[in-house]
Write a protein that binds this DNA or RNA. Structure first.
Lengths: 235, 235
DNA sequence: GATGTATGAATGAATG
DNA sequence: CATTCATTCATACATC
């Protein structure tokens, strides 16, 4: 175990505003930062980077180096696990599979999508802390390649701060959500979908559920920070 | 065969194709199977066993490896917690009892255990998950789970219970998955995305992960029954 | 249809 | 990095 991994956990200090918790609960902004860094390719920050990241995160709440370290470790582990799990579970059908495959003629690849617009992204949601990452399929879950990336990144100090993270500004009244995989700054309040997208579109959250919208195409409630949504045409 | 077998007529029988299912709700038969396995001593099945178990459970409803994994993890955790509580309460009772009863030495299995059994047999052998028995959980739970089980069982007329394991039937052919929130019948085997949707799409599962696809636009594995997917254009 | 509870799911925190 | 545990969050279901 690296010395860098040695915990500097500071379990006690807790801002008076914070609820008494036995373990660190990352704030949404902190999750965004961490996800951004992770998805920007730095999946295994060295110790000094961990310290820098912790200092960044501290703008939004008490956090220790150990928390950051564990976060990345778990993030890597669970990404990889999910990846394997998916592979395995789907691979089960591979053997029985070929009999069903009929090389349908390429003549009509027309069937395209009856739906019209389809899109992207998903993730796990949760009311309080939505993790995840719509950009999963961008950089995430790629254990093998990630190492080369991280290896190549270990020396450049501020790469992440200029790539992914710096794009996320936290202006008041706005927040970042992911729509079709792209980070988007949206107002915190109700959103006029027609004004914003111009079409008859609806938003589907990462659970596949329609985001409630009134007859004027205005979302009844604000979106959830950091959450992922899909635009779906319903015309 | 009793026709009451089908009398699983739960009041809340979902339509043949389950709608928005934000979380897995195990069928009574599935709970029976899981409880049986757990109580037989396999409290921490290794991965391959998890897969086998999942396949068993799938005879009674959609379930994924992760569900099985979580089920055993939660089952262990909550059994252990109850065990600890029981221990604590018994210890407390013992302490208070000791104030009345002067400990006469060395008579071994003194623990009266009028109400409970506490045992040991630490197991936790080593790295590889000991699926082997010798568990604190063995008989552990009492009122709570038994109630739920019996409650669940009242619905069926005992057609299942013991024989649940051996029966195995697969419906080859087609299954239902959700694509962009819409139920779709797809073949169980590999799917020619090119023929089905057109060239430039890929499937993302509900974890936001890309479903592996070869260079011909054919999914390497079949999809998972009941799972939700999103079509993503990658042009 | 509000509230309580059982439990599925997620994740921080370890350990080896 | 793989596994595991403890804790917490979210929700399905029961109950009223």
């Amino acid at each position: 175990m690296d010395d860098q991994t040695k915990a500097l956990a500071n379990p006690k200090e807790r801002s008076p505003t914070e609820p008494v918790r036995s373990r660190w609960t990352p704030k949404p902004e902190q999750i965004l930062i961490l996800e951004s860094i992770f998805n920007s390719g730095m999946v295994n920050p060295p110790k000094d980077e961990t310290v820098r990241i912790r200092k960044l995160l501290e703008k939004f709440g008490t956090v220790g180096d150990a928390n950051v370290f564990y976060w990345f470790q778990n993030r890597r582990s669970r990404s990889r696990r999910r990846q394997r799990q998916l592979q395995a579970s789907l691979a089960a059908a591979t053997n029985t599979a070929l009999s069903f495959y009929e090389p349908s003629p390429s003549s009509s690849s027309s069937s395209s999508s009856s739906n019209g617009v389809f899109f992207t992204c998903s993730s796990t949601s949760s009311a309080s802390s939505s993790s995840s990452s719509c950009s999963n399929f961008l950089v995430d879950d790629n254990a093998d390649d990630l190492f080369s990336i991280s290896r190549q990144m270990t020396n450049q100090n501020s790469s992440y701060s200029s790539s992914a993270f710096s794009q996320l500004h936290f202006h008041p009244g706005y927040m970042t959500v992911y729509i079709n995989g792209m980070a988007s700054e949206v107002p915190r309040g109700p959103i006029d979908m027609k004004a914003m997208f111009g079409l008859d579109v609806m938003l589907v959250n990462s659970n596949g559920e329609l985001v409630p919208m009134n007859e004027f195409g205005i979302l009844l409630q604000g979106l959830q920070m950091g959450e992922s949504y899909f635009l779906v045409s319903y015309t």
